[in-house]
Structures are given as C-alpha cells and as structure tokens.
Design a protein around this nucleic acid. Structure first.
Length: 760
DNA sequence: TACCGAACTTAGAAACGGCGCA
DNA sequence: TGCGCCGTTTCTAAGTTCGGTA
C-alpha cells in the first residue's frame, strides 16, 4: 500500500493502544458514565420529545446548515458512476476474473522471488498457486469455476441435471464405530478419510446451498441433577430447602460465585429478578434480598466436583472420552450431498446466566432451557428425519435448502435466532471463506480508484457525500468495522465507524510534533476499547471539524450516514464490495507486506516463525484484536526467564569445557582429544541454538501479551499468502496452522504432504 | 426507503487435554 | 507419576449483511 495507507506508520503510538489500556479503562468508564448520566438528564429535560422527533429536528438543523455551507450537487458523481460501470465491464469477465489474469499463467512470488512479483496478493491466481505450493508436478490442475447467473451453458445445465439425479446419497456401508463409507467400500480403522475436494467442483446457483441433507438433530443439555441433601442453601443465615426450579437457577449463580460478573450490580439485579420468577410463591415471599442469600456451600460443592473430575482415574477418564466420542460420531456429523460433514455445534446451549460482554444491560438474566418444542429442524424431505426425544415434539420440521443451518431455536435474552451449522472444514463454510478472499483480491484491483474517489468526495458539495467519504477513509485506513445502529438499552454501548459519536473523537491541530491528529477512544465489538491517535489529511481534519460543529458529545458524528447507505455506495463501486471487505483486504495485504519486509532468508526456522508472528501481530494490531493478558502471564514469563538464565549458565560451562578440551588437544595431539573437541563444539552449538529458541520464545510471548493472533489468522488472512511464504522459506506449514485451521488450503496441502512422505 | 428479522461471520473467554519436566 | 503450562477446541456473544415488507 502506498502513502497514508501504510497502517503501521499511520499510528503515532500504536503501542499505547495496548499498554495504556488499563490506565484508560477507568477514565473511559467515567466517560461512559458521564455519557449515560448526561443522556438521562437530557431525556428528562426533553421528555416531551420522542426519540425520533429529536432526531428529526436535529436532521433538519443539519440540513439547513448544509444549505448554508454547501451548494447543491453538480451531478459529477453520476458521471463518475457511469464511467466506472463501463470500466468494470472491461475489467472483468463473467466469472469475476480479469481476462488478462486468465490468459496468462501465474507464478507465486514466494516461489519465484523477483522483487517485482512480491505482490503475491495481487497477482495470485489462487487455484494454480495453491496447487503449485502443494503439488508442483500436477499437470491435471483445473481452475475452479464460480458459477454465476450468466454462466449457464447448455453443457453445464446438462451436468447439473445429472448431478441432481445423482444427489441422493449413495448406499452407505457402516464400518466400525463412526465409520461411514460410501460406494460400499469399507474403510480401514484409522485410515485418514478421503478428503472431498469440493473446490474442484462447481457451485450451486440461485441460492441453493444443498440438495440433500440428513442429520440426527441436536444433543440437548442434560436434565437438572438436584443437589445432594447435605449441600444447603441459606437465607439470612437459616437453611432453606429450595424447590427444584429455584434450586437449579441458584446453582447457576453459585457456579459463578468466583467470577467478577457476580459482583456487578446489573448482573445481580437481573439474576435476582429472573430467579424470583422461578420461585414458588412461598420462596418468593421469603427471599427478598440477594445479599441475604448464601450460596457458598453450593459453590464449594461444585468446586469439589470439579476437583474430583480432575482426580478421576485414567480408566474413568477414558470411559467419559469414549462416551463423548460416541455422541460425536452419532450427532456430530451430517450427510450433505453425498458427503459426511462435521457439525460445528451440535449441542444445544445449556441453561445458565447470560454473560454479556462489557456493560451489558442484560447480564445475569436467565437463559432458559431449550426443549424439543423450541427446535426447528431443517433437512431434506427425502432424508431420514431426526427423531425428537420420546414423548416430545419438534416445533417444526422444514426443508429449506437455501439456508445452511440444520437446527434453529429462538433464545430468550435478545429474542434472536440461534443455529446449529457445519464446521469450518465443511464445503459450505469453505466455499464462503474462499469467496471472501476472492472478493478481497478483487478490491485490490480497484482500491486505487476507490481511494481516489473518496478523496475527491472530501470536497463534495453535499454533506452526506463528505461524511460517506471520511467514514470510508477511516474504514480503509484504520480497518474500523462498519458500525450498525444498535437499540439502546438492549446491548452494551459499543460503536463502529458509522455509529461513532462526537465524544469518541478528539481533534488535535498539532500533537506530538504532528499535524492534524485525531484521537479515537471508543468501545468496539465485544466492548474492546479502541484507542488510537492518528494523523490524518488536512481535508479530513477540516471535514471532521465541520461534522462536529454545533453538536453535543452524544450526537452522531456521521449524522447523514449509516451502514446501509455506505454499503449501497460500495456495491456501486465494486460488485460484492461491503465495508468488511476492506478489513479482509487490508489485513491480508498487511500480512504480505510485513512478511516481505521482515523475513530474513538467512534466519533459522524459529526466527522466521517469529517474523511470521510479528507480521500476524501487525495485522492483529490493525484489526484491534486484543485479549486480556493470561492470568498466568507474569509467572510463565518468569519461568521462561529462569530457563533462559539456566541455559546461559549451561552455555558458559560448555564453552569453558570446550576451551579446556582445545588446550588439552593442543598438548596431546591425538585422535581422542580431537574428537573430544569436536563433541564439545557440537554441544556448544546445540546449547546456543536452544538458548536462541528460548529467547525468541520469550520475545514472542512478551509481544503477544495483550494481542490475540488467532482471530486474524483464522478470519482475515488469506491462507494462500501464508502457504506460499512457508514454501518459499522452507517452513513446515504445521508451524503456522494446526490441523483444524484453514480447511480449503490445508486439507489439500496436508494431503500432498502426506503423499510426499509416502513416496519418500 | 426505512425497518426488521434471518442468516451468517467474527470474536474473546473458558474449558479441555496432552506434553514435558521435576 | 503428578503437576503445571500452553496450545487447541468449544462455546456462545456480538457483529455484518441481505432481503422482504410496509
């Protein structure tokens, strides 16, 4: 990326986003409190206005101001749009791939390392490069076809028809536990299952997700197991026997007694309110104050139970493991279009207390038990439908093949729908993932034009266009999320780009020797704090001043913008473009740039992996993927340091021994002493390597203290970049991805690796 | 065009389990 | 052999996007 889009330079103090986070947390909480109090006061004052009235009046105010400041639109945008549409037609063929790229072959720059080809992300022809990485001499490679509406040749229609005829599952032969073999071939135990190369097949059209789907339904949470009679609950110091329903809910609280949640007022209030709903009228009249409730015996009981589980014998543990495996084999897989696919979450969420993140107004509420009568089953008409537990009924059985879920139910906290879906290794998820990275690569081709346009729009005569352009600049430069509007009081007060409020930004004409600095401070997804000081272009700065003029701190910064308007605009700029594509694109391109920049081919494997982790870290910082430092962090760092110190001593000893061996050899001049020198040399070398490994580990861990790498690795980084990097620098792919990560690249890769091993 | 619900992705925390070390 | 550590897996909350409806 060029200019101001190099993310890492753009943050004056990127480290401060993490290092200061605790310092700022309290300040932020105060701020949030103030905001809420202020809001309440204002609401009281303005109680005669409804929310929408207030918004309307504010809209009008801004509209009038616009008129004063800006003259009417001159139609240049439409011209631009038309021009762009034409260009778009030229750029792409029907399947979304540039013609040029289709005609010319491609070589991964990480394989062929000329500097001009270092832009892997841009020039990559994905299927081919993947294949190259995996299997250089596979001449049979066929690029995957992405079917579109325009893509229906007669031949393909015939093929589809044939597929439809073939779609019923082939007769399966059951092998030993959990083995399902197709085509009547029994699979040998432990033999790796043949991997479905779905990426080599054509996709469904018209929103069809599958033709055949069969599964066994969900696994329900075990029924409540009442407490033994010796485990007592006390109210106001006196023992009180609770009814089963009230006792169950009490145990949810008792299980969380050591958690910070139970100390929060909102949590306690919500819990108590919902708990009382489960009580008998007698209990209700007696138990009126949570503070008088003593759950400690219950809590101790659960702790003891957890301890005894840990202390179980090997055999007992094995028995449980086997039972879990049996359940997994029975319920953890489905049959989708002839293939056995792993289900991600086949267990229904058990009842408990809702743990919202951040200052969630509903934390502590009772998540009720889900019964078969709440469950909607989705499967093929012609499949064997899952049976509800004896004496119960499903809410509904439907056959909707335009969705990917198998089971759904509505949860009682937010009233939202929960789903049981397939594992990321499934075709259905992998295909989507692949598509996502392809869209991001499409963006790479037109991002310069889009950037030029939004820069131009900063000067627009229309306020809404200026706001859109500045928001897009933030989304692109800072990888902010889109920021949907949220219902007040239903969730924690978090924002994204479009929902930023005036109070979330502070403008500094000059700061730390830089001009036009914007200081962001807000809570994003999961109430993770985003704190960043960013120098921006003068025009952006001036626009922000304009947007903030005459507004209250709690007013929307972009009052003429929402995610729907923004995404509609993005759709016009590029097919399939939405705000989140920028995050994927910028994450992947950052990884590639960082890898190019910091990998040293002379380094050994651990040092190269450190480089990879650092590149990954740059992405995680960009995307603001933070985590709470592990509880054992300080201790584990200390342990590591002790190991390093010991290793250093060991090295010093080894060096001394080598020195004396050398001196000895000089005097003796015999074979034996020569050999001794050699072996001492090797020992020194070995210890040096071990020390280096430990030091690298310490650096990596320290740098990772508050940063979560997993999310970016799993969701934002095009795996082809990592795979190509591994190939170029001779790093085993297993060092970067474990066996469950990145199915579409790794399953194939792993297969080729295994084949190669077999051949040698 | 605004609104809303459905569907799906992204997210951090917690639980789990296996491995290395004393 | 037991224990602690740490990577992996599971869990489910919290986002985004899309499409239908009024």
């Amino acid at each position: 990326m060029s200019g101001d889009h190099s993310h890492n330079d753009s943050q004056i103090d990127s480290g401060s986003r993490y290092n200061d986070s605790h310092k700022h947390k309290d300040k932020y909480k105060d701020k949030e409190h103030k905001h809420k109090d202020h809001k309440k006061d204002k609401e009281r004052e303005k109680s005669k206005y409804s929310n929408s009235e207030h918004r309307d009046s504010s809209d009008k105010k801004h509209r009038d101001k616009d008129k004063e400041r800006l003259k009417l639109k001159d139609g240049s945008l439409d011209k631009q749009k038309d021009k762009h549409k034409e260009k778009k037609k030229e750029e792409r063929s029907f399947d979304g791939k540039p013609k040029k790229e289709k005609e010319n072959g491609f070589e991964s720059p990480f394989i062929k390392s000329e500097p001009e080809n270092d832009d892997f992300y841009h020039s990559l022809k994905h299927e081919k490069s993947l294949k190259r990485v995996h299997d250089d001499d596979d001449a049979e490679f066929k690029p995957k076809k992405i079917k579109t509406e325009d893509d229906r040749s007669e031949k393909k229609a015939k093929k589809r028809k044939q597929e439809e005829e073939d779609i019923k599952p082939k007769k399966k032969t059951k092998g030993k536990k959990g083995e399902v073999a197709t085509d009547g071939k029994k699979k040998a135990k432990k033999e790796p299952e043949e991997k479905w190369k779905w990426w080599e097949e054509e996709r469904y059209t018209d929103g069809v997700k599958w033709k055949f789907l069969e599964h066994k339904g969900p696994v329900f949470a075990p029924p409540y197991d009442p407490l033994p009679s010796n485990v007592k609950f006390y109210y106001d110091g006196k023992h009180m026997k609770l009814s089963p329903a009230a006792e169950e809910v009490a145990t949810f609280f008792a299980k969380m007694l050591d958690h910070e949640y139970t100390t929060k007022e909102v949590f306690q209030k919500n819990f108590f309110k919902d708990w009382r709903k489960e009580m008998t009228s007698e209990e209700k009249s007696k138990i009126t104050d949570l503070k008088k409730c003593d759950f400690s015996e219950m809590s101790e009981y659960f702790k003891a139970q957890s301890e005894s589980r840990k202390a179980m014998t090997k055999e007992e543990k094995q028995k449980i493991k086997e039972e879990n495996e049996r359940i997994l084999q029975e319920y953890g897989f489905c049959l989708m279009d002839n293939h056995k696919e792993r289900i991600a979450n086949f267990r229904i969420e058990p009842p408990g207390l809702f743990r919202g993140r951040g200052d969630h107004p509903k934390m502590g509420m009772l998540k009720r038990r889900i019964r078969p009568e709440d469950i909607i089953i989705n499967c093929s008409k012609d499949s064997k439908h899952p049976k509800p537990p004896p004496g119960t009924k499903w809410k509904e059985v439907r056959h909707d093949n335009k969705v990917t879920w198998l089971v759904s139910w509505t949860e009682n906290i937010q009233g939202s729908i929960k789903y049981i879906m397939l594992n990321p290794s499934s075709r259905i998820k992998g295909e989507k993932d692949w598509q996502k990275y392809e869209t991001a690569r499409q963006l790479k081709k037109c991002v310069d034009r889009i950037r030029a346009q939004y820069r131009d729009d900063w000067k627009s005569k229309e306020m809404r266009i200026r706001q859109r352009a500045v928001a897009l600049y933030f989304i692109d430069k800072l990888a902010l999320r889109a920021g949907n509007e949220k219902e007040e009081g239903e969730t924690a007060d978090t924002v994204g780009c479009c929902s930023l409020r005036v109070e979330h930004l502070t403008l500094h004409q000059e700061m730390d020797g830089q001009e036009y600095v914007v200081e962001f401070d807000f809570l994003g997804k999961d109430s993770i704090r985003y704190y960043n000081k960013v120098p921006v272009e003068k025009r952006v700065f001036k626009n922000l001043q304009l947007f903030m003029e005459d507004k209250e701190p709690e007013d929307d910064l972009f009052d003429r913008l929402n995610t729907s308007i923004l995404n509609k605009h993005l759709q016009e700029l590029m097919d399939g473009l939405t705000a989140k594509v920028f995050r994927t694109y910028n994450a992947s391109i950052t990884l590639q740039q960082q890898l190019n920049e910091i990998t040293n081919s002379e380094d050994n494997v651990p040092a190269k992996i450190l480089s990879y982790n650092r590149a990954n870290r740059a992405v995680a910082i960009l995307c603001n993927h933070q985590r709470a430092p592990p509880k054992t962090f300080e201790k584990s760092m200390q342990n590591l340091q002790t190991k390093i110190d010991a290793k250093k001593e060991q090295l010093a000893d080894a060096k001394r021994e080598l020195k004396s061996a050398k001196a000895d050899a000089k005097v003796r001049r015999d074979e034996k002493s020569k050999k001794a020198v050699e072996s001492k040399k090797k020992a020194v070398q070995r210890i040096e390597e071990q020390l280096m490994k430990l030091e690298v580990q310490a650096t990596d861990r320290e740098e990772n203290k508050q940063i979560a790498l997993g999310t970016s690795k799993l969701n934002y980084l095009d795996p082809r970049i990592s795979v190509a990097w591994c190939k170029k620098f001779g790093i085993p792919i297993e060092k970067i991805y474990n066996k469950t990560q990145h199915p579409f690249s790794l399953s194939d890769f792993q297969q080729v690796v295994n084949l190669a091993k077999e051949k040698t």
